[in-house]
Amino acid sequence: MLSGLQRDSFEYSIHNANPVNGLVRDKSRDGWPASIAAVGLALAAYPIGVERGLMTRDDAVKRTLTTLRFFATAPHGPEPDATGYKGFYYHFLDMHPGRRAWRCELSSVDTALLLAGMLAAAAWLRYDTADENEIRKLADALYRRTDWQWMQHGEATVSHGWTPEKGFLLYRWCGYDEALILYLLGLGSPTYPLPAESYRAWASTYRWKKIYGIEFLYAGPLFIHQLSHLWVDFRGIHDEFMRQHDLDYFENSRRATFVQQQYAIRNPREFEHYDELCWGITASDRPGPRTLLVDGIQRAFHDYIARGVPFVRRLQTKKEPTWRGGRGLTSR
């Protein structure tokens, strides 16, 4: 079963990619644009596909080189229809010309996921051939081009992004979230490194929670506890916060997974099929935002913002967790 799931997941990046530029569709709906995060995940998946016999090395090299050449030569500047600017790239790109889609933002975290995929592919493709040498050079050049200090916009933490119409977004990466890989890449940059105070500022807004008797560094969506781990083995690695709690990020993600499972087992909103084998709530798509009648109960569904466990304020017993003002789970 797991082998089949892995194969099906891997083939998403094959069937939804543009072979001309390497861009990968954000989701399989017709006409949907590419997501640069999806491209980064695909680049990281190609070496695994080769190792598991799901694709040939030659195919992995061809797809990777096509993708990196595209990002190295695509329009890069402050123009509103470019592909990127200052080493960052727009969250969504048109699948064919590869230009900015939907007046979206230059995304700092999605650029980090893209770069992580590039660097992972380059680290694995180590043969001394013209194509693999070019892949390594391009990945290094694209990483060096990213101006992390510019994305700080005068503050310690990193901005969510920038648009040519309105400048930097108001939101910043703080609190435990998927930006762990962003800060690691920023700190390690050989050209525009983030200062150590940037990471400390990000970690200073962490929230330690106890939910269902399990203590851990809290984040609601399951993907937050997984994404950065695709590229870094965090076992035995401790920053100041984790040292204080005698924990590492690997064990923290394990605990967060058990919390997710416990939520499904307890199933406080009485959804059908939730149990110990059907669990894991993360970034969602459809049927919201709307209210539907389900089994005689009016239920409010959300779309992109439905990302954690649980999301909506509800009635609780004294021992159940509650969502307070969008700040996360707490125990009464």
Score class of each variant (00 low, 15 high):
residue 245 H to G: 05
residue 151 M to N: 12
residue 174 C to A: 14
residue 324 R to S: 11
residue 278 C to H: 14
residue 191 T to L: 11
residue 144 R to C: 13
residue 178 E to A: 11
residue 311 F to L: 09
residue 134 E to Q: 15
residue 271 F to S: 00
residue 40 G to A: 08
residue 8 D to G: 00
residue 28 S to D: 12
residue 140 D to T: 13
residue 195 P to M: 06
residue 107 S to M: 10
residue 210 K to R: 14
residue 218 Y to Q: 10
residue 115 L to E: 12
residue 60 A to L: 04
residue 248 D to H: 07
residue 9 S to M: 03
residue 45 A to D: 12
residue 177 D to E: 13
residue 99 R to M: 06
residue 122 A to M: 05
residue 327 R to E: 13
residue 216 F to N: 08
residue 79 E to C: 02
residue 20 V to H: 10
residue 32 W to T: 12
residue 26 D to R: 03
residue 239 D to G: 05
residue 45 A to H: 06
residue 273 H to P: 02
residue 54 L to M: 15
residue 45 A to I: 06
residue 155 E to L: 03
residue 138 L to E: 02
residue 316 Q to R: 13
residue 109 V to P: 04
residue 158 V to D: 07
residue 262 Q to R: 14
residue 146 T to F: 08
residue 332 R to H: 08
residue 93 L to S: 10
residue 237 I to K: 11
residue 115 L to S: 02
residue 210 K to P: 02
residue 152 Q to V: 08
residue 5 L to G: 08
residue 252 N to D: 14
residue 118 M to K: 02
residue 293 L to F: 04
residue 94 D to M: 09
residue 101 A to Y: 06
residue 327 R to Q: 11
residue 129 T to A: 01
residue 107 S to L: 07
residue 316 Q to C: 14
residue 267 N to F: 09
residue 278 C to R: 12
residue 101 A to C: 01
residue 133 N to Q: 15
residue 11 E to R: 08
residue 199 Y to K: 02
residue 289 P to K: 12
residue 109 V to Y: 04
residue 107 S to Q: 07
residue 79 E to T: 13
residue 81 D to H: 07
residue 142 L to G: 03
residue 65 L to H: 04
residue 261 Q to N: 14
residue 201 A to G: 06
residue 130 A to H: 03
